[in-house]
């Protein structure tokens, strides 16, 4: 996993609440058995005017000039500014893969859906929750200033505006540690393999029906 320390990135505003995972990556792209290559289809239904199917060459498609991410000023954005309940809907991690493959490193919103929030950390995408009033302010500033950037410092847990105004954010210490160091959860968990086995042994005695094999 790519580590996250400091990102100084261009901000793109997506001014809608309840952006769902079907919108972030439509279902036809979930047929892929890979983890990569979803970026050209992030927000597919909004981004293009023609209906998209897997395998199409994105450069040949009709782009929707109205969609905010298609505006020249937001090309190369690494920070997505969004509204409440971002990432609601399905558990598809493809939504996170689409955002990271597109080039986003962080999403700032007043609230996130739980599964999306979890999935983000597993892929080096930092979801930052800020107060609605602060998000409002960031929307205003982003829209008013071409080339608007924010600096996100994970170690310090701050988002800093070009004017030097810094907003603190919360992050779970364990997730922060993993993200700062780009650590793989599985290897960390397997350090506790003995404890997992001990739990299983005790539990098997108490409730053997939980351990019945599916192949029977």
């Amino acid at each position: 996993m790519q580590a996250f320390t400091v990102v100084d990135g261009l901000v793109a505003p997506l001014d809608r609440s309840n952006v769902d995972t079907d919108a972030i990556i439509p279902k036809q792209y979930l047929k892929s058995v890979k983890r990569t290559g979803f970026g050209p289809n992030a927000f597919d239904d909004w981004r293009y005017l023609d209906p998209g199917e897997p395998g199409m060459d994105a450069s040949q498609r009709r782009v929707n000039p109205e969609f905010v991410l298609n505006q020249p000023r937001y090309q190369g954005a690494e920070i997505l500014l969004a509204r409440k309940n971002f990432g609601c809907g399905s558990s598809r991690e493809h939504a996170v893969w689409a955002l990271t493959d597109y080039g986003f490193r962080a999403v700032i919103a007043p609230s996130f859906a739980d599964i999306f929030f979890n999935n983000s950390f597993k892929n080096g995408l930092l979801p930052i929750q800020l107060d609605e009033a602060v998000v409002d302010q960031l929307f205003r500033e982003t829209e008013a200033t071409e080339g608007y950037r924010l600096v996100i410092d994970l170690a310090a847990q701050t988002v800093t505006t070009p004017a030097g105004e810094a907003f603190g954010f919360e992050v779970d210490p364990f997730r922060k540690h993993c993200l700062l160091n780009g650590l793989d959860d599985i290897a960390l968990t397997l350090q506790h393999a003995d404890e997992i086995r001990a739990y299983e042994q005790k539990r098997r005695a108490e409730a053997p029906w939980l351990f019945r094999e599916t192949a029977s």
Binding site: R35, S91, N118, N123, D185, I186, L190
Partner: peptide, 12 residues
Amino acid sequence: IGTSEVEHVLAT
């Protein structure tokens, strides 16, 4: 759960 968690549950 997401796919990374699917892998985590399979492995651990």
